[in-house]
Design a protein around this nucleic acid. Structure first.
Lengths: 339, 339
DNA sequence: CTGAAAGCGCTTACAG
DNA sequence: CTGAAAGCGCTTACAG
């Protein structure tokens, strides 16, 4: 494999000049640059990242930490990040903690800090004070997507208010018996998502003087299958049923819809369902939801990182407030049937 | 940040000994090792990947190339890979080509060959002869998941035969008017998936002396939305309709099912639907399908790579044949209604 | 604008 | 089992 010396030899210059010509750092005369580029091309030379990183202290490599890659929000954010990073010529090192504590630990202590990364993007990750301190001590830029982390640039939607609005939509339609489907405590280890959304839900009920019924506060780990099971069993209860359910994610709402179908419950006639996300399939399901552009959030995170690395300046910074969302009313919500 | 010299100083040994004690390469007395580990721990020392890689020629970093991260098969395979790689202490560099030609090109010429990777796993990627040659010339292990690449270790299911069996299942039920839903030519740039599955479909029809009707050969890029649109318009045609449809992926089958629902067509009464994959949601949809364990395929790819890197030996090599699949009959298939 | 040289932080024959 | 030294392939002050 051709090295920098081979290129230097062929172009008739020093290795230092090759480095400058190819990297764009430092001044090189146009003629020299052309000869160097030509020589590099002919030899199929490509710089050694490791050597370059070691010498310069910059890796052109960004770490991305996600709880899982198989849920809509995460995979979509990841796609946004990956595309933008390729455009910028950066590598992406993926850390999928898989929700497992031990993986998380090794990600932090071993991998993230191994000095191979220029910066880190975390997605919906709850960091302990200790981890925040670790990150700070390494002195590398960090941008978080979803949720709030002290002293760290964050891109997130307004979980509290969007859920409040979704709930108010149902209340305005006349619903008074409303269930909530969120994540479990256990899932919450990754982030306080559920909490913020559930808080928003309870706030809306409270404002309308409606009672929060503990037996209608369900948890399903943000999976469609889990949601299906919970709603199926809820609907099979002989007792009074809710006339509407607020789901903390579209994927859970899909499960709720399928559960209603299999229970012979008409949506929206007998049950209204709202989601939260703007999943690609929400339109096919006719789901009323709050849509957020996950891909763009990933792109913004990369731009923010590049800005922090001094590669570019942000024109307008979406991290100054909440990331914009859009309320989409479709066909899964309607006034409750008159008893 | 503590370096190897700091650790050496604290432990009262040379840097060489620290390196040997921590890496496990070469002999070190137990006492020395303990002192070194203690010192490293106290200083929070973690080896510099870049320096280590440069000196040793090994990166402990595997490149993974996927066409997209937002489809079930890819994200599930990726999760398998990511988990197994973390267990092995390797980093994962993700290349999402996003189906865009220019990204693919830069992945190959710039990134993959940048000497920072020990090996590469490609997922459902069609490589040109030229690209295969490039990979071979770099002399790094490559394992491919899905599809066949000459001279490269491959993990894949038997696309032809599984689709044949799926189709025969419908024929045995009595169906004679069967449509096929695959990917478009354009999507096929990534791999010959569709082709193999469509070939299997046509072979089964042929064996049963049934006619392949060109107007019932549909393409939808493997997305649920695309499949929905195609099947919706197929079902709205005034002319004779098929009584069954073979979908080249479960995600497309979901779209077909939703299209049938919205068209007022009963499944399986008026239309039977089969998928291919064993998507997490196939059970909820009651879909008859061939299930493949995507996560395990990712895990196997990693094991194969580690074997090629000399890190471990495979007990039993699933790449010797096709990766096992399982035929799952559920409720979306039934005999056609008697006209 | 260009080159010689030092240095990035490790690993690994080589010698003992 | 351990250390001194060379070297991995670049980048970047420093000098000219």
């Amino acid at each position: 494999m051709a090295g920098i010396k081979d290129v230097a030899l062929r172009a008739g210059v020093s290795a230092a000049t090759v480095s400058r010509a190819l990297s764009g750092n430092g001044k090189v005369s146009p003629g020299t640059r052309a000869r160097v580029q030509q020589a590099a091309e002919e030899l199929g030379y490509v710089v050694s990242f490791n050597a370059s990183s070691l010498a310069s202290g910059r890796s052109r490599n960004i770490g991305v930490v996600v709880p899982t890659v198989s849920r809509w929000f995460f995979s979509t954010v990841l796609e946004g990040i990956a595309g933008e990073l390729i455009n910028a010529g950066y590598d992406l090192t993926l850390y999928d903690t898989g929700g497992q504590e031990q993986h998380r630990a090794s990600v932090f202590s071993d991998l993230l800090l191994r000095k191979r990364l220029d910066a880190v993007i975390t997605v919906t990750l709850k960091l302990s004070d200790d981890e925040v301190r670790q990150l700070a001590s390494v002195d590398k830029p960090v941008v978080a997507i979803g949720g709030f982390i002290p002293d760290i640039a964050t891109i997130r939607v307004d979980d509290f208010n969007t859920t409040t609005l979704l709930t108010e939509h149902l209340i305005e339609l006349g619903h008074t018996r409303i269930a909530f489907l969120g994540g479990s405590e256990e899932f919450d280890v990754d982030f306080k998502l559920t909490t913020a959304r559930q808080d928003g839900f309870e706030y809306a009920l409270d404002q309308a003087n409606l009672e929060v019924r503990p037996e209608w506060l369900l948890a399903a780990n943000f999976t469609t299958e889990g949601a299906y099971r919970k709603i199926r069993s809820l609907l099979s209860m002989p007792r009074e049923r809710p006339t509407a359910v607020v789901c903390a994610s579209d994927e859970m709402a899909f499960g709720a819809l399928m559960a209603a179908r299999d229970s012979g419950i008409d949506v929206p006639g007998e049950l209204s369902v709202v989601g939260m996300d703007g999943h690609d399939l929400s339109e096919l399901f006719g789901l009323t939801t709050f849509s957020q552009d996950a891909r763009s959030q990933g792109i913004w995170a990369v731009r923010k990182i590049l800005e922090l690395l001094g590669e570019r300046a942000l024109e307008r910074d979406p991290t100054d407030g909440f990331y914009p969302t859009e309320f989409v009313v479709r066909s899964t919500t309607a006034p409750p049937a008159r008893p």
